[in-house]
Design a binder for these strands. Structure first.
Lengths: 252, 252
DNA sequence: CGTTTCTTTGATCTACTTCAAGGGGAGTGG
DNA sequence: CCACTCCCCTTGAAGTAGATCAAAGAAACG
């Protein structure tokens, strides 16, 4: 098992952030979402969602390292990443903490809070990011009118379930290098679905965050990456990743 | 990483089952659910759920080792365990297979299929079990009438999300013995919520299944259990578990 | 009762962690 | 512009938790 990750203030430590976030992130009215099929609002008339009285009416800007919400905070909104990326970190009843999710543009954040009304994890911006705010109450009332919207939300929840299941598979039955490869392929695929390049992307995760997500130490992650580089499968510089041989990676 | 788990027919192997299940499990009309707060239908008038025209109208009986559904099958129903228990097993695109969930009485099964319309995992009875069948189409139409029902379903999905997140935590940051303890405490708590004894229960999982779920080999599971026994924390005989010192276990 | 499957326990091996040290970028202040 | 610091990343060497291999005991099953 990886390092126990100290006790408190670990959020700050793992994001390279120094001072507490006393200033709330800036928010402003939100323009209609054009993110395509990944965006939550798809399936409902646009005007019912955006604009005043709409479900989605504000956008939040977060600086790198800023929390979108913290574990234990009352749940009120869902979020959809507009730009940038976020991680979700969970800590058990003892201090131990782990990255349990990485969220890119178009992907939903905050679904875990629905069941209890309290956020079960903390969401932290990995880079300067912006998110759409979807007040849950407004969403549910929109749902009560549009069956399509209900179904869409349920599918979103179920999709997240499947994402976490495959991560369970990775942690439970893959070796270190296989986990790293699986993660890169996963990111590649999600990038492709979003219309970005599936072979070249920057991951704003530190090696420590990556290790935490993959159940490995940062050193092991680093070693795996250099091994893949030496095999000519990828090219890594800092946090810029380029996949050179996608088929080769898929063959593990 | 634990054993790669062969290629095909692994379902049969891990449940100790020999012949294929050519005969469908028996089904019969379902009496109203009395399972209390854990049961899905809570929040909707009973007559709208059970009885003819209701959402829940049949019950399925499964023999130990019988599949409720298999991965890749078209999704049509959700299920709630009435008695007995089930495991869900997921396999990645290569042969590797893993137990990704264990479901006891009152708990929902099949939620992963909602997102794609295809079951993403296989559900196998761990003991002779019975489940309520909830046709998804009927459920959604019931949802379109009752907002409370919608909300209940969403919470169910979110709760499952939280369950898988804590399993992610366990696999990512706990040592072998801690994983075993965490699992026992989890089962204990779920038993208590259901009204059964939190300190004495039978787990119809083989050591291999347990290991698969916890990301360990069966030998390691066995060794951890005997270690806990020697510490006087638990008593294990075959698959009968008795927790002798709950506080001691919680202290890891 | 004999066969099969499951479980326990021991001995060895190895993949990954841990510990340690050096190198590179980015920001800050002189 | 350079020096300084703070992270972050890489690489090496050593230690260890847990996997693997192996074999024997205990239930389950026909």
């Amino acid at each position: 098992m990886p390092k126990p990750a100290g006790s408190t203030a670990a959020i700050e430590r793992t994001t390279g952030q120094r001072s507490p976030w006393t200033v709330r992130p800036t928010s402003k009215p939100c323009s209609p979402c054009v993110r395509g099929p990944l965006c939550l609002p798809q399936g409902l008339a646009r005007e019912a969602l955006h604009g005043r009285d709409g479900v989605v009416n504000t956008m939040l800007h977060l600086q790198r390292g800023a929390p979108l919400y913290v574990a234990g905070a009352p749940f009120g909104n869902l979020y959809v990443v507009r730009s940038g990326s976020l991680k979700t970190v969970t800590s058990d009843h003892r201090g131990r903490e782990q990255v349990t999710g990485v969220h890119f543009a178009g992907e939903p954040v905050g679904l875990h809070g629905i069941s209890t009304g309290t956020h079960a994890n903390s969401a932290i911006a990995l880079a300067d990011s912006s998110v759409c705010i979807i007040p849950y109450a407004a969403l549910t009332s929109a749902c009560s009118e549009a069956a399509a919207m209900q179904e869409r939300l349920r599918r979103l929840l179920s999709a997240q379930l499947n994402r976490e299941s495959s991560q369970l598979m990775a942690l439970g039955s893959l070796a270190a290098n296989e986990r790293v490869v699986a993660f890169l392929l996963d990111v590649s695929e999600r990038n492709g679905q979003r219309g970005d390049s599936p072979v070249e992307f920057t991951l704003d995760l530190t090696r420590a965050d990556l290790g935490s997500y993959l159940g490995l130490t940062l050193e092991t992650v680093s070693r795996c990456l250099t091994a893949l580089r030496k095999q000519g499968l990828i090219d890594v510089q800092h946090r810029m990743f380029r996949i050179l041989d996608l088929e080769g990676l898929r063959a593990l």
